[in-house]
Design a binder for these strands. Structure first.
Length: 331
DNA sequence: CTGATTTGACCAGC
DNA sequence: GCTGGTCAAATCAG
C-alpha cells in the first residue's frame, strides 16, 4: 500500500517534471524564433540545460523505480483497452451481470473507465466531443458537492442489440469546458453500416480507443493549461504537433492496431538527442511524445487510478542517456 | 409517428 | 436518511 502511494507520488512527480519540460521547450521555441543575439543564445543554452536536467531526473526516477514505468494494474483483471478476448473481459463481465430493475450497480469501479475531455466547440458547448457512438440520455442528477449535474447516457442500441454500454458525463467544476466522462460496460452493438469510416472501423475493433485517445488529448490540454498559464495552452487546436485541427486530430497520431494496442507514429524511436534537434517543431514533438508517454502510465490524480491503462506504451530502458529523452517502445 | 430528451419518482447501498 | 443510479411518463423535435 505504501508502495502504491509512493509510486503514485513518483508518477505525479514525473508528470509534473515533464510538464515543466514542456514549458521550457516552449520558451526555447520562442527564443529560437526570435532573432538570435548573444543573450538569446545564452538563454537557449540555459533552457536546454534545464530541460536535460529535468529529463535526466525523470529518467533516473524510472530507473530507480521500475514500477513507475509499468502501467497501473487495472482494478480487477485485465485491461479495458487491450483485449479482444471477450469472455473474461471486465466490461463484458459487468455486462453479463444481471441488473435488477433500478438496482444500482455494485461499486465495481474496475468496470469503468474515466476520461476527461474538452468540449467540442469550446466552453460554450453543451457536451464533450462526439465519441463516435450514439448515446441516449436517460437521466440527470445533481451531484452533491458538484456545481454541475451529471448526465447519464446509455447506448442507443441497448434495446435493439442489448448493448450494455453506458456513460456518465459531468462538467468539471474548475474547468467548465472540460467534462469528466465515465464509461461503463463495453459496446456489443454493431454500429450502423452507414458512415463506417476509418474512425468507426477503429472503434469497432477497440470500442474504448476513442475514449482513451480523448483522455490522452485532454490530459495534454489540462496539464498545459495549468502548468503554463502564461503561455497559450496546447489545446488540440493549437498544438503544433502535426497541426492538429480537432481533438481527434491530436489523437490522429495514435492508432489502434489489430490487437487494440495503441501505436504512435512518432517513429522511429529512439528520439534524437537535443543537439540533433533541428527545429522547434521537433522539440515540441519530442517533449509532447514524452509527456504523453509518461502520462499514459502516470494518470493525473484527478483521473484516479483506474484511468486508461495504456499498457501498450512503455519506456524503453535501453535508451542512451546521452539522448536525454525517454522513448516509446512497441511491444 | 417515431425516437430522443426531460424530469420527478423509485430503489439500493452506505 | 442521504446519495447516486435508473425508470418511465410526459414532452419535445424531426
Amino acid at each position: 500500500m505504501a508502495d502504491a502511494v509512493e509510486s503514485r507520488g513518483g508518477r505525479a512527480r514525473l508528470v509534473s517534471d515533464l510538464g515543466r519540460v514542456q514549458d521550457l521547450v516552449r520558451q526555447l521555441e520562442l527564443q529560437l524564433r526570435a532573432p538570435g543575439d548573444a543573450a538569446s543564445v545564452d538563454l537557449c543554452r540555459r533552457l536546454v540545460h534545464q530541460i536535460v536536467a529535468l529529463t535526466d531526473s525523470s529518467i533516473g526516477m524510472l530507473h530507480s523505480s521500475p514500477d513507475l514505468a509499468s502501467p497501473l494494474p487495472a482494478i480487477g483483471t485485465g485491461s479495458p483497452i487491450s483485449s479482444d478476448a471477450a469472455s473474461d473481459h471486465p466490461f463484458r463481465a459487468a455486462a453479463s451481470a444481471s441488473a435488477s430493475p433500478k438496482k444500482r450497480k455494485a461499486t465495481a469501479r474496475w468496470t469503468s473507465q474515466q476520461v476527461r475531455v474538452s468540449a467540442a466547440g469550446g466552453s460554450g458547448a453543451e457536451g464533450p466531443v462526439d465519441d463516435g457512438y450514439s448515446w441516449r440520455k436517460y437521466g440527470q442528477k445533481d451531484i452533491l458537492g458538484a456545481k454541475h449535474p451529471r448526465a447519464y447516457y446509455r447506448c442507443t442500441h441497448r434495446n435493439s442489440q442489448n448493448c450494455p454500454a453506458t456513460k456518465q458525463v459531468q462538467r468539471t467544476d474548475d474547468h467548465p469546458a472540460l467534462f469528466d466522462v465515465v464509461y461503463h460496460g463495453e459496446h456489443t452493438c454493431r454500429p450502423a453500416a452507414a458512415g463506417g469510416g476509418s474512425k468507426r472501423a477503429a472503434q469497432q475493433h477497440n470500442p474504448h480507443a476513442q475514449a482513451a485517445l480523448q483522455g490522452l488529448a485532454a490530459r495534454l490540454t489540462v496539464a498545459t493549461a495549468t502548468d503554463a498559464a502564461a503561455l497559450p495552452p496546447m489545446t488540440p487546436e493549437s498544438c503544433p504537433v502535426r497541426g492538429a485541427s480537432s481533438p481527434w486530430s491530436l489523437a490522429s497520431s495514435v492508432a489502434s492496431d489489430s490487437n487494440g494496442c495503441m501505436h504512435q507514429d512518432v517513429s522511429p524511436c529512439p528520439v534524437p538527442g537535443y543537439r540533433e534537434w533541428t527545429s522547434d517543431g521537433d522539440l515540441q514533438e519530442v517533449v509532447s511524445s514524452a509527456f504523453a508517454a509518461v502520462s499514459s502510465v502516470a494518470p493525473l490524480p484527478v483521473l484516479d487510478d483506474e484511468f486508461m491503462p495504456l499498457e501498450c506504451f512503455g519506456f524503453d530502458h535501453t535508451f542512451d542517456i546521452g539522448t536525454a529523452m525517454p522513448s516509446l517502445y512497441y511491444p
